[in-house]
């Protein structure tokens, strides 16, 4: 892909992001932060490439450390989002017994 092609994807994605995020209900802004945090860990792709590449031992170890950090985020981010979202309940449904 040439630079202009990726720049186009980027600019379009910014617009998509703008409209999608404005439609998020304010009550879910904390889960929104948690899930955006999880998906921004897609940076793991770069860490995996570095970890898998031969040629530089230091680059490989930096990559592996990056994989650990990004994985903490991916698993932690999605798990905590899911935990939060499970708590949002409507009035009509009888709430499960607690306490």
């Amino acid at each position: 892909m040439d630079f202009v092609a990726i720049l186009s994807i980027f600019v379009m994605a910014c617009f998509v992001g703008y409209y999608v995020v404005w439609s998020v209900t304010p009550a879910l802004h904390t889960p929104l932060m948690a899930v955006t945090n999880a998906i921004s860990s897609v940076i793991i792709v770069g860490a995996l490439i570095a970890g898998a590449a031969a040629g530089s031992a230091s680059s490989k170890w930096l990559g592996l450390l990056g994989v650990v950090l990004a994985s903490i985020n991916i698993f932690g981010g999605f798990a905590v989002t899911s935990r939060m979202l499970a708590m949002y309940k409507k009035k009509d449904r009888p709430a499960p017994a607690k306490h």
Binding site: F10, A13, V16, G17, V20, I39
Partner: peptide
């Protein structure tokens, strides 16, 4: 990565 980065 680019799409995600732009979204986040």
């Amino acid at each position: 990565m680019i799409i995600t980065g732009a979204l986040v």
